[in-house]
């Protein structure tokens, strides 16, 4: 009877989810809904590892990673043990430059090729004074011991998890008290132009629409997510990047090299050439600039949260005030 759910085939896995979020009492109502095909995402990230091979430099990813790592400099404390979860973690490693005082750095991705790429890159240009280790793991099933990490960074990866609250709860549990969770995900405005172009073209050519782009979290959800996962001092902010491409094909190539292509379970398996060309035409005519380039919006939501610790500031108990606001107003307000 023990662990029968894990008996090889992938489709029998969902019950195993009980093991992972079940250990925490506050993992209430974690959704069993499957939206994304995680094994396909893994393959796409394998492909991304190959596509980014000659030069793993991507200005969009790099600026997001830079922005994310910048937050480490705002923290007074250092983080000796840090984990970097899947998504664009190569950029994180490359741009780290000693920030956050990290001594032990663990990089985890679901894609073996991506991890190997990072390992090779680490050999070529090691981060000084950082002991880097590598793990192949799934964000939905974090393999980290409870209270073992000072910092968890996730750069553009968590928006592909089926159970984002569950994944974040696992992150919180893996953190030590006063540990920092730092994540960036793509938000709902991302690729809105492509979303519109796909819909229009599909309506026109096929008389109906199928999901081509995944549902993404909205900004207002992000704060709720952090609170629901039990992080204290939650902080959310948003940045919008507009990237200009010379054609929509270039946009798709870029998405491929980031591993950000469609991985919805309910996706349509075929894309007719006609529809694809129509989408490109619609995109060009609706959003194209005069110089022939097309813009694509990427909305990035940055989330920060801390694992609770007694040293953190918190609101005082209700009714514990000793001075009335009226007195304060009398003192300062009326002169």
């Amino acid at each position: 009877m023990r662990a029968s759910p894990i008996n090889l085939p992938r489709r029998t896995l969902p019950p195993a989810r009980l093991y992972c979020t079940g250990i925490s009492d506050d993992a209430v109502g974690s959704s069993k809904l499957k939206i994304f095909d995680r094994s396909l995402k893994r393959k796409q990230r394998d492909r991304a590892a190959w596509l980014m091979q000659p030069k793993p430099k991507d200005s969009l990813v790099d600026s997001v990673a830079e922005n994310l790592l910048d937050r480490l400099e705002d923290c007074k404390r250092t983080f000796s043990t840090a984990a970097c979860l899947g998504g664009s973690m190569e950029a994180i490693r490359r741009l780290l430059r000693g920030r956050g005082g990290i001594e032990k750095f663990i990089m985890m991705d679901a894609s073996c090729d991506m991890v190997n790429l990072c390992k090779r890159a680490e050999k070529d240009s090691p981060n000084e004074n950082v002991e880097t280790s590598f793990v192949v793991g799934d964000e939905e099933f974090l393999p980290f011991k409870e209270s073992s990490l000072d910092l968890i960074i996730s750069n553009l990866g968590l928006h592909w998890t089926n159970d984002l609250p569950g994944a974040m709860i696992q992150c919180r549990l893996a953190l030590k008290p006063d540990g920092l969770f730092l994540a960036s995900i793509f938000g709902g405005e991302t690729l809105k132009e492509l979303r519109i172009a796909c819909t229009v073209a599909q309506m026109e050519r096929e008389g109906g629409i199928s999901p081509r782009l995944s549902p993404l979290a909205q900004v207002r959800d992000a704060g709720n997510l952090l609170t629901r996962a039990g992080f204290s001092l939650p902080g959310v902010d948003v940045d919008e990047y507009v990237v200009r491409y010379s054609s929509s094909l270039e946009l798709i190539e870029h998405l491929r090299s980031m591993g950000e292509t469609n991985a919805l379970l309910q996706r349509s398996q075929i894309l007719k050439k006609e529809t694809a060309l129509a989408t490109a035409a619609v995109y060009q005519s609706m959003f194209g600039a005069e110089d022939g380039t097309i813009p694509a919006t990427f909305q990035v939501i940055f989330m920060t949260g801390w694992r609770e610790h007694h040293s953190q500031q918190k609101a005082k108990r209700r009714g514990s005030a000793t001075i009335s606001f009226k007195d304060i107003q009398n003192q300062f307000g009326n002169n």
Binding site: A3, I6, A16, Y19, C20, I23, T81, K104, I106, E131, S133, V135, G137, D138, F141, L142, P143, F144, K145, E146, S148, L149
Partner: peptide, 12 residues
């Protein structure tokens, strides 16, 4: 480092 931190992803 890894052996100190890693646990089973399913059962923890």
């Amino acid at each position: 480092t890894l052996s100190e931190i890693l646990v089973c992803p399913l059962s923890k």
